[in-house]
Computed example of a mutant assay.
Amino acid sequence: MATKNVRSIEEQVEDWCKTQLRSIKYYTKTESINSEIEEALRKAPSKSGGEGANYPDIKCFLETSDMRRIPVMIEVKGRKGDLIKCDKNGDICNLNKDKEPHYGNIAKYAVNGAVHYAHAILNNTESYKEVVAIGVNGYDTSIGRIYEMGVYYVSKENLFVPKKVGEYTDLSFLLPEYVNGFIKDIDKLFLTDSEIELKKIELEDDIERRLKVINQKMHDEDYGQKIDVGQRVQLITGLVMAGLGVPGKVSPLSVSDLRGDQGEKNNDGQVIMNKISDYLSEKQLPRQKIEMIEEVLRVVFIHSKLQEPKDGESALHTIYADVRQNIIPFLTGELHNIDFTGRLFNVLNEWVDVPDGAKNDVVLTPRYIT
Rank of each mutant, 00 (worst) to 15 (best):
N5T: 13
S8Y: 02
I9Y: 02
E10M: 00
Q12M: 07
E14C: 15
W16M: 12
C17N: 03
T19F: 02
T19E: 07
R22N: 05
R22D: 10
R22W: 02
I24F: 04
T30D: 13
E31C: 10
E39Y: 09
S46R: 10
G50K: 12
G52L: 10
N54G: 12
P56W: 00
D57G: 12
I58V: 13
F61N: 06
D66G: 11
I84C: 07
D87P: 06
K88I: 01
I92E: 04
N94D: 13
N94S: 09
P101T: 00
G104M: 04
A107D: 14
Y109L: 14
H119G: 04
H119V: 11
I121P: 06
L122S: 13
T125F: 10
Y128I: 12
Y128G: 09
I134P: 00
V136E: 01
S142C: 05
G144K: 04
G150C: 07
F160Y: 10
E167Y: 03
L171S: 03
L174A: 03
G181I: 03
D187I: 05
F190E: 12
I196T: 01
E197G: 08
K200M: 14
E204F: 04
E204G: 01
E208R: 14
R210D: 02
V213K: 15
Q216E: 08
G224Q: 09
L235Q: 02
L235V: 14
G238I: 04
P252S: 01
S256A: 13
E264K: 15
N267K: 04
D268E: 06
K275V: 00
K283Q: 14
Q288P: 11
I290W: 06
K305A: 05
K310T: 05
L316Y: 01
L316Q: 00
H317T: 07
Y320K: 03
Q325S: 12
N326V: 06
I328N: 03
L331D: 06
G333Q: 11
D339F: 01
T341G: 13
N349M: 14
E350R: 15
D361R: 15
P366E: 11
R367K: 08
